[in-house]
């Protein structure tokens, strides 16, 4: 017994529509200071492509598929890991100078350059 988890046809289009709307709304009204960190953060999020690469590589049955799949995972892993490292460093600048204390004031004003 097995379930079919794949999503096709109009259900997929509905998911695309809702996800696109969600992305648009989430980013709306963001202060200009966060433009670059958010670009970097969304860059990290599309690093999920590594999962697609893993699926392709694990199901590879020819040498050509293995080679291309290898590069898919390699590039996807680079996207995810590098995107995280860069975004984390950018956003660390928004943290307050005393990390142990609870945030109670505006953090943006404490950002060091």
């Amino acid at each position: 017994m097995s379930f079919d988890f794949t999503i096709t046809g109009f259900v997929a289009l509905h998911i695309f529509m809702l996800a696109g709307f969600a992305g648009w709304v989430i980013i709306g009204n963001v202060p200009a200071i966060l433009h670059t960190p958010l670009m970097s953060g969304s860059n990290f999020i599309h690093g999920i492509v590594v999962v697609g690469g893993l699926y392709t590589l694990i199901n590879a049955s020819t040498t050509q598929e293995q080679v291309i799949g290898f590069f898919a995972v390699l590039l996807g892993a680079g996207n995810a890991a590098g995107g995280y490292a860069v975004t984390d460093r950018m956003l660390a600048m928004f943290k307050s100078s005393e990390p142990a204390s609870k945030p109670h004031r505006s953090h943006a004003s404490k950002k060091k350059h």
Partner: peptide, 28 residues
């Protein structure tokens, strides 16, 4: 592109993450 490949592979996580980034990136 990631969202589209998610559709090809039938992987909803790729579809959602890719499309969210596509829309958010466009607005950004």
């Amino acid at each position: 592109a990631v969202g589209i490949e998610g559709f090809v592979l039938g992987n909803p996580a790729l579809m959602i993450a890719g499309m969210v980034v596509g829309a958010a990136g466009l607005l950004l």
